[in-house]
Nucleic acid binder design. Structure first.
Lengths: 336, 336
DNA sequence: GAGGGAAGTCGAAGCGCTTCGACCTGCGCA
DNA sequence: TGCGCAGGTCGAAGCGCTTCGACTTCCCTC
C-alpha cells in the first residue's frame, strides 16, 4: 500500500506538505496541491487509519451501543442505528457497533484503547450503571434516552411523557371517558427502561387532568400477549371506548383481534398508536399515531456528538415534542 | 492515559517485556509477569488501538456491510448483525458497521485505510458490483448470500433453493396439488438479491417434480400488499389449498385476512412460512416454518473470517440445509 | 531601500506500540 | 572443563502519520 512518503516522493515534495494538502491546515500553492493530488490519485493512496489515530489523536470513529436483542422493538432500533450510521458518515465518521450485552465493559474498552472519539448509548435505564462510567471517560458521550440523573451527559429523546399525555388528550377531546393502555412488554418495565415509565406518567397525568377512567398493562409482543392484555383491559374497564398502544409488535395482532371480535375501529373503539411512522403506515387501517422519530433522534445524537467534539461544552438535553398524526382511527365516543 | 512506557517503568522492566507479557510471544518469568500485570491493573493501562494497528499491522476490527433499510426484513437483518457482533467479540474483535448505501466505496475506504482486518458483506445480489472490489482488497472477505460468481470469495447462506423445494415438498406430501407463493417485496427481486431467485427456483423445481399447479407473486410488506397478492393467487389458482410465504412482514396480515374471510388454517388452507424461528413463534397460530437461521449464519460468517485471518486459504462456500419445523399449519389436502 | 509579514515549504520530533537481534545467565552434557 | 542451548530480558528500529518551528520568498508599506 502506498504511504504518504510514496506520495511525497512522486510529487516531489515533503511528507508534511502532503499532510497539509490533505488536512488543509496550512496554505499550499495551487500548483503543489495539484501535483500532490495527482500523485494521490495515481497511487490510490489512503492514509493509514492507525497511524492517523496515533499521530492525530482522533480516529473519526463513533461507538454506538445498541440493544441488539432481536426480540423487541426491532424496527425502532433499526431506525436509530441506520440514522446514526448515516449521520456519522455525513460528518466523515464511521460507527463501531457495540451490543448492550457488553455493558460498561465495552464502553470502557473502546474508549480506553482510543478506538473511538465519542460514544452514543441507546436504551438507557432510569438508573443506568453506564452513566458513571461514561462520565469518567475522556471521550464525549450522548445518550439516546433519559436517565434519572444524566449528571452532565447530553441526552436526546422523544418526550415520552408528553407523548403519553398527547395520546390521551386526543382521545379525551373526542369525548372518550375510558382509555386503556397497551404498554411495552413486561421486560421493558423490569429493566427500568425509562421511556416506558415516562410514557406511563404522561398517560396518567392526562387521565387525571381529564378525569378519565383508565387501565394499563404491559403486553407481550405476540398475538397471545395482545389478546391477554386486551382481555384484562376489557375486564377492568367494561365497554372501554379508547385504546392507546405503546407496543409496535402488539399493534397488528391487536387489530386482528378487534376485527375478528366484531369491534370496528374507530366506530366501536378508537385507537392511538405510539410507533414509528412507517410502522403506522404499514398497518391494515389508517392509524392515528404519535410518531417515534427514530431517524431524527439518531441524527440529532450525532449532531450533538459532533458539537461536543468541536469543543462546545454543556450538556444540553433535548426532548423532542411529540407530534400526533391523525389518520382516522379515532372517532367521537359513542354517546351515553 | 497510561502508556506501555508507564507500565514498564512501574514494573521496572523494558517496554518490550511488557509487550511480550501482553502478547505471550516470548517466555516471561512468572515473577516478571506478575509485576507487569500488577502495574497494568494499577495504572488501568489499555494498549492504544492506533499504535497497535500501526506497529502490529492488524486492528482486530471487522467490517460488516449491512442493508440498513428500515423497511424490509428487519428482524432477519437484526439477527445477522447481532450474531456477527457477538461472534466477533468472542474472538476479541469489534465490528465497524457500514451501510450498503455506501456500496463499494465504503468497503474500499475501510479496507484501504486499514481500519479493518476483514469484511463481511450481507445482502448479496446475483451480480454484485462489490465482488470484484472485494477481490482486489488485501483483506479477507466473506459474503452472507450467494452471488452467481463468487470468484474465490467465501460464501455463507441458507440453501434457499433447497428451502423452496422443502416447503413445496412438505405440502405435496400432504396431498396438495396447488400451491401459491407469496414472495418477497418486488424491490427484492428488482435488486436481484439472490436469495429470492434461488428460493423461487427451488420452489419451481418442486412444483415440477411433484406435478403441481402453482402461482407465485412478489408481495409488498403491508396489509394491502398481502391482500393484493393473495387475491391474485386466488384468481390464478381458484381453490388453492396451500400457501408458501417467503415474506415475514406479510405473514401477520395474511393470517388476519384468511381468518376474516373465513378460511381456516390448516383446515381450509395449509401454510408454510420461511422466516426466523422467533417470528414464526410470535404468530397467532402455530406456524409450520422453514427456519432462516440468522444467528447461525452470522456466527458462521465470523468463523470463516477468523480462519481466513489465521491464514487458512480456500474459498469454502457453505449453504446450510434448511430445516422445516412442523407446527401444525399444514393439513392433508381436502379430498376432491 | 529597509523592515515586516504573509505565503509556502521542509525537516525532524514525536505518537505508542511490536518485533528483531543481541545479550546474559544458568543448566545439562560430552 | 568447556560448550551449546534454552530461558528471559533489553535496546532500538521502525510502523505511517501530524505538527511545530524554522526557513525562504515575495510583496507591501513607510
Amino acid at each position: 500500500m502506498a504511504t504518504i512518503a510514496d506520495v511525497a516522493a512522486a510529487a516531489g515534495v515533503s511528507t508534511s506538505t502532503v499532510s497539509y494538502v490533505l488536512s488543509g491546515r496550512r496554505p499550499i500553492s495551487p500548483a503543489t496541491r495539484a501535483r500532490v493530488e495527482a500523485s494521490i490519485a495515481e497511487l490510490g493512496y489512503r492514509p493509514h487509519a492507525g497511524a492517523r489515530a496515533l499521530a492525530g489523536r482522533h480516529t473519526n470513529v463513533l461507538a454506538l451501543a445498541a440493544p441488539l436483542r432481536s426480540d423487541i422493538n426491532v424496527p425502532v432500533i433499526m431506525q436509530f442505528v441506520t440514522s446514526v450510521v448515516t449521520a456519522a458518515r455525513s460528518y466523515d465518521h464511521d460507527v463501531l457497533l457495540l451490543t448492550n450485552d457488553e455493558g460498561s465493559a465495552g464502553l470502557e474498552r473502546v474508549a480506553g484503547s482510543a478506538m473511538v472519539d465519542a460514544l452514543i448509548v441507546m436504551d438507557i435505564e432510569s438508573d443506568d450503571a453506564r452513566i458513571p462510567v461514561l462520565r469518567r471517560l475522556r471521550q464525549p458521550a450522548v445518550l439516546i434516552g433519559l436517565p434519572n440523573r444524566p449528571g452532565g451527559i447530553s441526552c436526546v429523546d422523544l418526550d415520552f411523557a408528553s407523548a403519553g399525555f398527547t395520546a390521551v388528550a386526543h382521545l379525551a377531546e373526542h369525548g372518550h371517558r375510558t382509555v386503556g393502555l397497551i404498554g411495552p412488554p413486561p421486560a421493558v418495565y423490569q429493566r427500568g427502561t425509562s421511556y416506558a415509565t415516562r410514557f406511563l406518567a404522561g398517560f396518567a397525568d392526562a387521565v387525571e387532568e381529564y378525569g378519565l377512567a383508565s387501565a394499563s398493562h404491559p403486553c407481550e409482543p405476540t398475538f397471545d400477549g395482545a389478546l391477554a392484555c386486551l382481555n384484562r383491559i376489557d375486564e377492568e374497564l367494561p365497554g372501554v371506548s379508547a385504546l392507546v398502544v405503546h407496543n409496535e409488535a402488539a399493534l397488528s395482532p391487536l387489530l386482528g383481534i378487534l376485527r375478528s371480535s366484531g369491534r370496528r375501529v374507530p366506530e366501536d373503539v378508537s385507537v392511538v398508536a405510539i410507533c414509528p411512522e412507517d410502522v403506522a403506515l404499514g398497518l391494515p387501517i389508517r392509524m392515528t399515531s404519535v410518531d417515534i422519530p427514530g431517524h431524527q433522534l439518531g441524527a440529532l445524537a450525532v449532531e450533538r456528538v459532533m458539537s461536543l467534539l468541536r469543543g462546545e461544552r454543556g450538556a444540553e438535553t433535548r426532548l423532542l415534542a411529540p407530534s400526533l398524526a391523525e389518520r382516522g382511527s379515532c372517532a367521537d365516543a359513542p354517546i351515553g
